[in-house]
Protein backbone atom coordinates (compact mmCIF):
# COMPACT_ATOMS: atom_id res chain seq x y z
CA UNK A 1 0.00 0.00 0.00
CA UNK A 2 1.27 3.43 -0.88
CA UNK A 3 -0.20 6.49 0.78
CA UNK A 4 -0.10 9.79 -1.02
CA UNK A 5 -1.61 12.68 0.89
CA UNK A 6 -2.81 14.59 -2.16
CA UNK A 7 -4.29 11.53 -3.88
CA UNK A 8 -5.86 10.38 -0.65
CA UNK A 9 -7.46 13.75 -0.07
CA UNK A 10 -9.01 13.49 -3.53
CA UNK A 11 -10.16 9.94 -2.92
CA UNK A 12 -11.60 10.93 0.47
CA UNK A 13 -13.57 13.77 -1.14
CA UNK A 14 -14.78 11.31 -3.78
CA UNK A 15 -15.85 8.79 -1.16
CA UNK A 16 -17.70 11.50 0.75
CA UNK A 17 -19.53 12.56 -2.42
CA UNK A 18 -20.45 8.96 -3.18
CA UNK A 19 -21.77 8.60 0.38
CA UNK A 20 -23.86 11.77 0.00
CA UNK A 21 -25.39 10.48 -3.23
CA UNK A 22 -26.17 7.13 -1.56
CA UNK A 23 -27.82 8.94 1.34
CA UNK A 24 -29.81 11.21 -0.98
CA UNK A 25 -31.01 8.16 -2.91
CA UNK A 26 -31.89 6.22 0.23
CA UNK A 27 -33.72 9.14 1.84
CA UNK A 28 -35.28 10.55 -1.34
CA UNK A 29 -38.84 10.35 0.09
CA UNK A 30 -37.74 12.09 3.31
CA UNK A 31 -35.92 14.87 1.44
CA UNK A 32 -38.91 15.43 -0.80
CA UNK A 33 -41.25 15.46 2.20
CA UNK A 34 -39.13 18.21 3.79
CA UNK A 35 -39.33 20.17 0.54
CA UNK A 36 -43.03 19.34 0.27
CA UNK A 37 -42.84 18.03 -3.32
CA UNK A 38 -42.80 14.77 -5.25
CA UNK A 39 -41.43 13.95 -8.72
CA UNK A 40 -44.80 13.24 -10.35
CA UNK A 41 -47.17 16.13 -9.56
CA UNK A 42 -47.68 18.73 -12.28
CA UNK A 43 -47.49 22.38 -11.22
CA UNK A 44 -48.64 24.45 -14.18
CA UNK A 45 -48.76 27.61 -12.02
CA UNK A 46 -44.96 27.63 -12.00
CA UNK A 47 -44.91 28.01 -15.81
CA UNK A 48 -45.70 30.84 -18.21
CA UNK A 49 -48.02 30.37 -21.19
CA UNK A 50 -45.28 28.85 -23.39
CA UNK A 51 -44.34 26.25 -20.77
CA UNK A 52 -41.12 27.95 -19.59
CA UNK A 53 -40.65 28.08 -15.79
CA UNK A 54 -41.37 31.49 -14.26
CA UNK A 55 -38.71 33.21 -12.19
CA UNK A 56 -34.97 33.06 -11.60
CA UNK A 57 -32.92 30.01 -12.65
CA UNK A 58 -35.76 27.92 -14.06
CA UNK A 59 -38.20 28.72 -11.24
CA UNK A 60 -35.97 28.29 -8.19
CA UNK A 61 -37.96 29.20 -5.08
CA UNK A 62 -38.60 28.12 -1.49
CA UNK A 63 -41.15 25.63 -2.86
CA UNK A 64 -38.98 24.34 -5.70
CA UNK A 65 -35.33 24.19 -4.61
CA UNK A 66 -33.97 23.33 -8.06
CA UNK A 67 -36.81 24.98 -10.01
CA UNK A 68 -39.27 22.99 -12.11
CA UNK A 69 -39.33 20.97 -15.30
CA UNK A 70 -40.47 22.97 -18.34
CA UNK A 71 -43.86 22.08 -19.83
CA UNK A 72 -45.01 20.05 -16.79
CA UNK A 73 -43.86 22.05 -13.77
CA UNK A 74 -42.77 18.91 -11.94
CA UNK A 75 -40.31 19.60 -9.14
CA UNK A 76 -36.72 19.29 -10.38
CA UNK A 77 -35.18 18.64 -6.94
CA UNK A 78 -37.48 15.65 -6.47
CA UNK A 79 -36.63 14.42 -9.98
CA UNK A 80 -32.90 14.70 -9.25
CA UNK A 81 -32.95 12.85 -5.91
CA UNK A 82 -35.29 10.14 -7.19
CA UNK A 83 -33.11 10.01 -10.32
CA UNK A 84 -30.19 9.17 -8.03
CA UNK A 85 -32.12 6.07 -6.99
CA UNK A 86 -32.51 4.99 -10.60
CA UNK A 87 -28.89 5.70 -11.55
CA UNK A 88 -27.30 4.12 -8.49
CA UNK A 89 -29.60 1.08 -8.46
CA UNK A 90 -29.12 0.36 -12.16
CA UNK A 91 -25.39 1.12 -11.90
CA UNK A 92 -24.93 -1.19 -8.91
CA UNK A 93 -27.16 -3.92 -10.40
CA UNK A 94 -25.40 -3.91 -13.77
CA UNK A 95 -22.00 -3.91 -12.05
CA UNK A 96 -23.05 -6.86 -9.90
CA UNK A 97 -24.14 -8.80 -13.01
CA UNK A 98 -20.88 -7.94 -14.81
CA UNK A 99 -18.66 -8.78 -11.81
CA UNK A 100 -20.37 -12.10 -11.06
CA UNK A 101 -20.16 -13.16 -14.71
CA UNK A 102 -16.62 -11.82 -15.03
CA UNK A 103 -15.36 -13.62 -11.91
CA UNK A 104 -17.05 -16.91 -12.81
CA UNK A 105 -15.92 -16.92 -16.41
CA UNK A 106 -12.49 -15.31 -15.98
CA UNK A 107 -11.23 -17.42 -13.09
CA UNK A 108 -12.51 -20.72 -14.46
CA UNK A 109 -10.99 -19.99 -17.89
CA UNK A 110 -7.62 -19.21 -16.31
CA UNK A 111 -7.82 -22.17 -13.93
CA UNK A 112 -8.95 -24.93 -16.24
CA UNK A 113 -7.38 -23.72 -19.50
CA UNK A 114 -7.65 -25.96 -22.55
CA UNK A 115 -10.48 -25.69 -25.07
CA UNK A 116 -12.73 -23.99 -22.51
CA UNK A 117 -10.19 -21.19 -22.11
CA UNK A 118 -9.89 -20.82 -25.88
CA UNK A 119 -13.67 -20.55 -26.29
CA UNK A 120 -13.86 -17.95 -23.51
CA UNK A 121 -10.98 -15.92 -24.93
CA UNK A 122 -12.53 -15.92 -28.39
CA UNK A 123 -15.91 -14.90 -26.94
CA UNK A 124 -14.26 -11.99 -25.17
CA UNK A 125 -12.65 -10.95 -28.46
CA UNK A 126 -16.03 -11.12 -30.19
CA UNK A 127 -17.70 -9.03 -27.49
CA UNK A 128 -14.95 -6.41 -27.68
CA UNK A 129 -15.50 -6.24 -31.42
CA UNK A 130 -19.20 -5.65 -31.00
CA UNK A 131 -21.15 -2.42 -31.39
CA UNK A 132 -22.57 -2.84 -27.90
CA UNK A 133 -24.20 0.60 -27.49
CA UNK A 134 -25.88 0.27 -30.88
CA UNK A 135 -26.99 -3.23 -30.03
CA UNK A 136 -28.37 -2.10 -26.66
CA UNK A 137 -30.29 0.74 -28.27
CA UNK A 138 -31.80 -1.59 -30.84
CA UNK A 139 -32.64 -4.21 -28.23
CA UNK A 140 -34.11 -1.64 -25.84
CA UNK A 141 -36.36 -0.42 -28.62
CA UNK A 142 -37.86 -3.71 -29.74
CA UNK A 143 -37.91 -5.74 -26.52
CA UNK A 144 -41.51 -6.50 -25.53
CA UNK A 145 -43.12 -4.04 -23.13
CA UNK A 146 -43.90 -6.87 -20.69
CA UNK A 147 -40.24 -6.96 -19.60
CA UNK A 148 -39.65 -4.40 -16.79
CA UNK A 149 -37.35 -1.73 -18.20
CA UNK A 150 -34.93 -1.31 -15.28
CA UNK A 151 -34.34 -5.08 -15.19
CA UNK A 152 -33.78 -5.20 -18.93
CA UNK A 153 -31.27 -2.35 -18.72
CA UNK A 154 -29.43 -4.02 -15.81
CA UNK A 155 -29.27 -7.35 -17.64
CA UNK A 156 -28.19 -5.97 -20.99
CA UNK A 157 -25.65 -3.47 -19.64
CA UNK A 158 -24.25 -6.09 -17.25
CA UNK A 159 -24.05 -8.71 -19.98
CA UNK A 160 -21.81 -6.43 -22.04
CA UNK A 161 -19.71 -5.38 -19.04
CA UNK A 162 -18.08 -8.66 -18.01
CA UNK A 163 -15.38 -9.16 -20.68
CA UNK A 164 -12.93 -6.56 -19.34
CA UNK A 165 -12.91 -7.91 -15.77
CA UNK A 166 -12.93 -11.53 -17.00
CA UNK A 167 -9.86 -10.91 -19.13
CA UNK A 168 -7.91 -9.41 -16.21
CA UNK A 169 -8.91 -12.16 -13.78
CA UNK A 170 -8.08 -14.85 -16.31
CA UNK A 171 -4.57 -13.47 -16.63
CA UNK A 172 -4.08 -13.29 -12.87
CA UNK A 173 -5.47 -16.78 -12.34
CA UNK A 174 -3.02 -18.14 -14.93
CA UNK A 175 -0.20 -16.77 -12.78
CA UNK A 176 -1.68 -17.84 -9.43
CA UNK A 177 -2.29 -21.37 -10.67
CA UNK A 178 1.45 -22.02 -10.91
CA UNK A 179 2.25 -20.76 -7.39
CA UNK A 180 3.72 -23.30 -5.01
CA UNK A 181 0.94 -23.00 -2.45
CA UNK A 182 -1.57 -23.99 -5.12
CA UNK A 183 0.59 -26.96 -6.07
CA UNK A 184 0.84 -27.83 -2.38
CA UNK A 185 -2.92 -27.65 -1.93
CA UNK A 186 -3.44 -29.93 -4.94
CA UNK A 187 -0.78 -32.34 -3.65
CA UNK A 188 -2.62 -32.50 -0.34
CA UNK A 189 -5.70 -33.64 -2.19
CA UNK A 190 -7.76 -30.44 -2.54
CA UNK A 191 -10.26 -30.58 -5.40
CA UNK A 192 -10.61 -27.80 -8.00
CA UNK A 193 -13.56 -26.21 -6.17
CA UNK A 194 -11.63 -25.99 -2.91
CA UNK A 195 -8.49 -24.64 -4.56
CA UNK A 196 -10.56 -21.97 -6.33
CA UNK A 197 -12.38 -20.95 -3.18
CA UNK A 198 -9.53 -21.11 -0.68
CA UNK A 199 -6.39 -20.37 -2.71
CA UNK A 200 -7.27 -18.44 -5.87
CA UNK A 201 -10.25 -16.23 -5.04
CA UNK A 202 -8.83 -14.69 -1.82
CA UNK A 203 -5.82 -13.52 -3.83
CA UNK A 204 -8.05 -11.90 -6.42
CA UNK A 205 -10.17 -9.99 -3.92
CA UNK A 206 -8.30 -6.69 -4.27
CA UNK A 207 -8.44 -6.78 -8.07
CA UNK A 208 -12.15 -7.58 -8.01
CA UNK A 209 -12.93 -4.69 -5.66
CA UNK A 210 -10.92 -2.19 -7.72
CA UNK A 211 -12.47 -3.35 -10.99
CA UNK A 212 -15.97 -3.28 -9.56
CA UNK A 213 -15.44 0.30 -8.38
CA UNK A 214 -14.14 1.40 -11.77
CA UNK A 215 -17.04 -0.35 -13.54
CA UNK A 216 -19.79 1.48 -11.63
CA UNK A 217 -19.36 4.96 -13.20
CA UNK A 218 -19.31 3.42 -16.67
CA UNK A 219 -22.52 1.51 -15.95
CA UNK A 220 -24.22 4.64 -14.61
CA UNK A 221 -23.13 6.39 -17.78
CA UNK A 222 -24.58 3.72 -20.06
CA UNK A 223 -27.94 3.76 -18.25
CA UNK A 224 -28.04 7.55 -18.55
CA UNK A 225 -27.08 7.34 -22.23
CA UNK A 226 -29.84 4.81 -22.97
CA UNK A 227 -32.42 6.88 -21.09
CA UNK A 228 -31.11 10.00 -22.83
CA UNK A 229 -31.82 8.32 -26.16
CA UNK A 230 -35.28 7.26 -25.01
CA UNK A 231 -34.66 3.50 -24.79
CA UNK A 232 -33.67 3.20 -21.14
CA UNK A 233 -35.80 3.54 -18.02
CA UNK A 234 -39.37 4.38 -19.05
CA UNK A 235 -41.21 7.54 -17.91
CA UNK A 236 -42.44 8.65 -15.46
CA UNK A 237 -39.67 6.98 -13.38
CA UNK A 238 -37.18 9.83 -12.90
CA UNK A 239 -33.82 9.35 -14.65
CA UNK A 240 -30.99 11.86 -15.00
CA UNK A 241 -30.29 10.70 -18.53
CA UNK A 242 -33.88 11.22 -19.67
CA UNK A 243 -34.08 14.66 -18.08
CA UNK A 244 -30.89 15.64 -19.92
CA UNK A 245 -32.43 14.30 -23.13
CA UNK A 246 -35.56 16.36 -22.51
CA UNK A 247 -33.38 19.38 -21.81
CA UNK A 248 -32.10 19.45 -25.42
CA UNK A 249 -35.23 21.24 -26.57
CA UNK A 250 -35.00 23.80 -23.75
CA UNK A 251 -31.29 24.51 -23.64
CA UNK A 252 -31.79 27.94 -25.21
CA UNK A 253 -34.70 29.02 -22.98
CA UNK A 254 -34.20 27.16 -19.68
CA UNK A 255 -30.56 26.08 -19.30
CA UNK A 256 -31.00 25.26 -15.59
CA UNK A 257 -33.12 22.26 -16.60
CA UNK A 258 -29.89 20.86 -18.09
CA UNK A 259 -27.57 22.00 -15.31
CA UNK A 260 -29.17 20.22 -12.32
CA UNK A 261 -29.59 16.65 -13.62
CA UNK A 262 -26.43 17.02 -15.72
CA UNK A 263 -24.44 18.28 -12.74
CA UNK A 264 -25.71 15.40 -10.59
CA UNK A 265 -24.70 12.82 -13.22
CA UNK A 266 -21.29 14.42 -13.70
CA UNK A 267 -20.59 14.68 -9.96
CA UNK A 268 -21.62 11.10 -9.25
CA UNK A 269 -19.52 9.72 -12.12
CA UNK A 270 -16.55 11.86 -11.17
CA UNK A 271 -16.75 10.80 -7.51
CA UNK A 272 -16.78 7.09 -8.40
CA UNK A 273 -13.89 7.56 -10.84
CA UNK A 274 -11.79 9.39 -8.25
CA UNK A 275 -12.46 6.69 -5.63
CA UNK A 276 -11.59 4.00 -8.19
CA UNK A 277 -8.34 5.80 -9.10
CA UNK A 278 -7.43 6.15 -5.45
CA UNK A 279 -8.09 2.47 -4.75
CA UNK A 280 -6.09 1.38 -7.76
CA UNK A 281 -3.13 3.57 -6.84
CA UNK A 282 -3.20 2.33 -3.27
CA UNK A 283 -3.11 -1.30 -4.42
CA UNK A 284 -0.72 -0.94 -7.33
CA UNK A 285 2.64 0.39 -6.19
CA UNK A 286 3.95 0.63 -9.74
CA UNK A 287 1.70 3.46 -10.93
CA UNK A 288 1.29 5.19 -7.57
CA UNK A 289 2.23 8.83 -8.03
Amino acid sequence: MNFDVRKDRWAAAGALTVALFLLAAAFAPVLCAIEGQDPYTYDLDALDSSGVPVGFGGGISADHWFGVEPLTGRDLFAIVVYGARTSLAVGAGATAVAVVLGVLIGTTAGFFGGWYDRVVSRTIDVLFGFPSLIFMIALGAIAPASVPRPLLVVAVVGAFGWPSIARVLRGQTLVLRTRTYVTAAVAMGAGPARVMRREILPNLRATIIVYATTLIPGMIGVEAALSFLGVGVAPPTPSWGRSIGDAIAWVGTDPMFLVFPGGALFLATLAFNVVGDGLRDALDTRTAG
Binding site: F228, I244, F266, L270
Partner: peptide
Protein backbone atom coordinates in the same frame (compact mmCIF):
# COMPACT_ATOMS: atom_id res chain seq x y z
CA UNK B 1 -16.42 11.43 -16.05
CA UNK B 2 -18.37 13.87 -18.20
CA UNK B 3 -21.01 12.29 -20.45
CA UNK B 4 -20.67 13.35 -24.09
CA UNK B 5 -24.20 14.71 -24.32
CA UNK B 6 -23.67 16.93 -21.29
CA UNK B 7 -20.45 18.42 -22.65
CA UNK B 8 -22.10 18.74 -26.06
CA UNK B 9 -25.15 20.54 -24.72
Amino acid sequence: SAPSYLVGL
